[in-house]
């Protein structure tokens, strides 16, 4: 959870958001479904956040930024009326020669599981992305999405269930699912 102790210890806007840029980009990727739109979405989010920065109390910066990101995404959807369904595998950084093979394997794995995650309905996808990928608390996710904690849990658990169903079809060991389903709802 990102909070500041008070006005005296409050960092400037760019310092505050730089530490959250990776998270914003990853969540934007889950929302926008491609890297170009994700960058645009984060840029719009930063612009909107900067305009609100003076009035922001400095508490729960991460949740505050995710809320703005979500709202910008909704605005973008309304503008476009539809969104692309394709997922690109990119965003390569500089790779050292020695770790190239391992890095390719790791990225392929991550890309594969994220591709399956991207197939989930948006409400479930974002709950899983924030709770399980970004490891935000239920409370922070509830604040970010402006929904009750019970709804966060419900979306998260259903999202995990849907993702497990998708991963079960994989021949690899992405999950250890071996017919251990059949769990009833609470």
């Amino acid at each position: 959870m990102s909070t500041f102790g008070g006005a005296a210890s409050r960092p400037d806007f760019e310092t505050a958001v730089l530490g959250e840029l990776g998270l914003l980009y990853r969540v934007a990727r889950r929302l926008a479904m491609n890297s170009t739109d994700a960058e645009d979405l984060v840029g719009q989010t930063l612009f909107s956040a900067a305009r609100s920065w003076e009035g922001f109390d400095g508490r729960h910066t991460r949740s505050w930024l995710v809320t703005i990101l979500k709202n910008q995404h909704l605005k973008s959807i309304r503008r476009k009326a539809s969104r692309p369904k394709t997922v690109s595998i990119d965003d390569g950084g500089e790779l050292s020669q020695g770790s190239l093979d391992a890095e390719i394997d790791r990225r392929a794995f991550v890309d594969d599981i994220l591709r399956e995650l991207d197939e989930l309905p948006e409400d479930f996808r974002i709950a899983v992305a924030l709770c399980d990928v970004e490891q935000m608390s239920y409370e922070d996710v509830a604040a970010a999405l402006d929904i009750p904690i019970g709804t966060v849990r419900s979306r998260l658990f259903r999202g995990r269930r849907l993702l497990r169903e998708r991963l079960k079809a994989w021949p690899s060991d992405y999950t250890a699912v071996d017919g251990a389903d059949g769990k009833g709802k609470e």
């Binding site: 840029l21 990776g22 965003d91 790791r106 995650l117």
Partner: peptide, 24 residues
């Protein structure tokens, strides 16, 4: 599955991507 999802957090935007977002 959750442990593997945690690994997806390691994905960071490239330096060029960061600059594009900040420039925007």
């Amino acid at each position: 599955m959750i442990g593997k999802l945690h690994r997806a957090r390691e994905v960071e935007p490239s330096e060029e991507s960061v600059q594009r977002m900040l420039n925007a």
